[in-house]
């Protein structure tokens, strides 16, 4: 009989000093401690990480990819949020 309902965890790894943790994948584990150990075994076999975060997948609220247009299209019509929109004479140089 399969073991029911072992929670899923999302795994985040800080690959280098100073960088943010980045999502690398997920795994099954009964609790946080086991999840951390499993993440170490599964995702850091080649020295990929300095530290690991595990987060219960059920705690993550995600946007629906179907809503992409509604959520993000409005930024496409706002070129004035980008530095290149403004005309600065070449002689001023980098600003």
């Amino acid at each position: 009989m399969p073991t029911p309902n072992t929670p899923i965890w999302e795994v985040f790894i800080r690959s280098r000093n100073g960088l943010a943790h980045k999502h690398v994948g997920s795994l099954h584990a009964a609790d946080a401690t086991l999840a951390l150990q499993a993440a170490r075994d599964l995702y850091t076999r080649r020295g990929e990480g300095l530290s690991i975060w595990v987060v219960p997948t059920a705690s993550i609220t995600a946007s629906d990819p179907q809503d992409r247009e509604m959520l993000f299209e409005p930024t496409a019509s706002k070129p004035y949020r980008h530095p290149t929109f403004y005309e600065i004479p070449d002689e001023v140089g980098h600003m």
Binding site: G18, Y80, P83, F85, Y86, E87, I88, M95
Partner: peptide, 23 residues
């Protein structure tokens, strides 16, 4: 440090729009 990296990326437009107004 990481918050500042995000902020700095956004500041360039601020300064340029100001300079453009002055110009």
């Amino acid at each position: 440090a990481r918050a500042m990296i995000r902020v700095c990326k956004e500041e360039s437009f601020h300064q340029r729009q100001g300079y453009e107004i002055m110009l």
